[in-house]
Design a protein around this nucleic acid. Structure first.
Length: 583
RNA sequence: GCGCCCGUAGCUCAGCUGGAUAGAGCACCAGAUUCCUAAUCUGGGGGUCACAGGUUCGAGUCCUGUCGGGCGCACCA
């Protein structure tokens, strides 16, 4: 049960009762009515702004609404006290037994605690990474990969039917360059001296085995032919090889996407034609001449008629070209077709995760989705800012020259998958992030991953050791849930339960905001509460978890910390980090 | 010139979509270990929420403007 949602139901019910009694008007709108944990714990367990929110609709002073409402709420069995405070807040203190029941909720649901049906099974498509298939993933891709993956898991947790997707940019000129680079490596594999890899080609060593494989399979079949003879085949083979590389990179982070959608297929299989036909039917495509961008006219600007999409009709600044000067489709045209395909597949909710440098592209893509879906579809583009790599506070220099950037794999190999995933979520996605190798490797509370995992490990350490003192005590979750939780009376213990009880709400808030970093912050707080209680047991032996002479209290305390372990594991699962049992 | 993001403690950042006296961590200072992992914890000082207006019961949060920083600005992807 989500206690805040429960209390909100009670508040609304009591307002209805007061309306029946003629004390309040009937039929008021409760949209802004909130029941939350107050920031200041001295204000009680939960607070509602009901009286403040309704003051206008009821045409009454906040306190005149609050007084009868608080009186009614005070009559509820779970409510220990109801007070009116400040401008008209109603602060409620709930019975300890009510909170102890919440701990039973946790123990009964385990790591599924926090799951909800908020989204009621609605389909949603989350597209992320979508790096060009020209080489291994590098540091620039990692954040979007982790963010997108965690977001997908988070959305699934609140009841979305999530599809995780990757768009393969396998149609542009850079794929031709890739194919030519591989052809060079192919010739090299056949013992031809190709010398230095020329400027403008991809020089990376990762292309060597691709060329070798083709040589092994086809021998000299592609030698001495005109480029047009081999380019298509080399593109196909190269992209396949690069996507294998990409998938392996993603797998090293524990990421597995379900759909890999080829841009090239849109060109070859009529996807672009049908998407643009759909727009043309709506009268949204025309031929026109664009104004040069103000303030910064490109040197080679020349006004000429272009095929344009009426993006400006859907909130974009200008209409956007669909064809290049050589007649080929623009990237945007293919992207329209791609999102058209998503709409056709039944997605009304779509999330695209992009790098911040693509921010200028959002308006046109939103415009396209609105146009394609008759305003039924909604695209939410989430931007990820840069990651700056540091080592002991010093910036790790990376030049653009190939081979000199830090790859995803190097990062994962050095600090480990869990650390990478957690650290990438310690900042809001649209804020720049510093990733310090040294901190990431530290085993101290400076390292948030360590801090949270350490709490989880400590709990399991206690669960392992209790058998030494109380060999007959049942410590499985079912037995713990049936233990005498009334033994939990210390304020630190109750605070921990109350903190756990906010977990379902925290998950919903994070999902609605589409900000998985909030999960990481929550976990840090919960871990902190747990570490504090642990240390309280150092100072006051009567508060230790294992009390050899008191099996009942021990069992109740184990119930408490098992609950914490479940919530920590539940949150770590969203982030994609392993909850370790020992360290 | 235009558009988007951002500006919160000395530093790095949260702030539950408008709630009560704005919070953490780092750093600094002072403490806790015969004891379930001290790999941890407790306490302390530190703020014109960039600035100026506006909206309302109430603004770090919403609107307008100014200043400062980042990204982008036909046909590349």
């Amino acid at each position: 049960m989500n206690p805040y949602a429960y209390i909100r139901e009670q508040v609304v019910a009591m307002i209805d009762v007061l309306a029946d009694d003629g004390i309040l008007p009937a039929g008021m709108d409760f949209a802004n009515l909130a029941v939350e944990a107050p920031r200041d714990p001295s204000h009680g367990d939960v607070a509602t702004n009901a009286a403040l929110v309704l003051t206008k609709q009821a045409k009454m002073k906040p306190r005149d609404i609050a007084a009868p409402l608080a009186g009614r709420l005070a009559g509820l069995e779970v409510v220990e006290a109801a007070e009116i405070a400040g401008p008209g807040f109603i602060n409620l203190r709930l019975a300890d037994d009510f909170w102890r029941e919440r701990l039973k909720d946790v123990l009964g649901t385990g790591t599924a605690y926090g799951d909800s049906q908020l989204a009621a099974g609605e389909k949603i498509n989350v597209e992320y990474v979508s790096a060009n298939p020209t080489g291994p993933l590098h540091i620039g891709h990692v954040r979007g990969a982790v963010y997108g993956d965690a977001l997908a898991t988070l959305l699934a947790k609140v009841g979305y039917d999530v599809c995780k997707e990757y768009y393969i940019n396998d149609a542009g000129a850079q794929v031709d360059v890739l194919a030519r680079s591989v052809h060079l490596r192919y010739r090299e594999a056949l013992r031809e001296d190709v010398g230095e890899i020329p400027e403008g080609m991809y020089p990376g060593d990762y292309l060597i085995p691709v060329g070798q494989d083709i040589a092994k399979r086809d021998g000299d079949k592609w030698l001495g032919l005109a480029e047009a003879e081999w380019l298509g085949e080399f593109r196909r083979l190269s992209v396949d090889a690069m996507m294998d590389l990409v998938r392996a990179d993603l797998a090293s982070l524990g990421i597995e996407q379900e759909v890999f959608f080829s841009e090239q297929s849109l060109h070859l299989e009529g996807g672009i034609d049908s998407a643009l036909a759909a727009l043309r039917d709506k009268g949204l495509i025309y031929t026109g001449v664009l104004e040069p961008p103000k303030g910064k006219t490109p040197d080679d600007w020349e006004p000429r008629p272009q095929t344009l999409f009426k993006a400006s009709q859907f909130g974009d600044d200008v209409d956007r070209p669909l064809q290049k000067s050589d007649g080929a489709w623009t990237y945007f045209a293919a992207d329209i077709a791609y999102h058209h395909d998503k709409v056709e597949r039944g997605y009304k909710q779509m999330v695209d995760v992009w790098g911040a440098d693509h921010g200028g592209y959002i308006k046109r893509m939103n415009a396209a989705v609105r146009a394609l879906s008759n305003d039924q579809g909604h695209l939410d583009v989430r931007l990820c800012q840069m990651v700056r790599l540091l080592r002991g506070g010093e910036v790790v220099r990376m030049s653009k020259r190939a081979g000199n950037f830090v790859t995803l794999r190097e990062l994962v190999d050095e600090v480990g998958r869990d650390v990478v995933r957690f650290m990438m979520l310690t900042r809001k996605n649209d804020a720049p992030l510093d990733f310090d190798f040294q901190v990431a490797m530290e085993q101290s509370k400076d390292n948030p991953v360590f801090y949270v995992q350490y709490a989880h490990a400590r709990i399991h350490s206690v669960l392992r050791r209790v058998g030494d003192e109380l060999p007959d005590l049942a410590v499985d979750p079912e037995s713990l849930a049936k233990s005498d939780l009334g033994r939990l009376t210390d304020s630190a213990e109750m605070d921990l339960i109350k903190h756990m009880a906010t977990w379902p709400r925290a998950v919903e808030i994070a999902a609605q905001a589409r900000e998985p970093h909030r999960i990481a912050f929550y976990l840090n707080e919960l871990a902190s509460d747990f570490h504090a209680l642990w240390n309280k047991g150092n100072a006051e032996p009567g508060l230790r978890f294992i009390m050899p002479e008191d099996a009942g209290t021990t069992q109740a305390r184990l119930a408490l910390i098992q609950g914490v372990a479940f919530v920590l594991a539940s949150g770590l699962a969203i982030i994609g980090v392993e909850p370790v049992d020992s360290m």
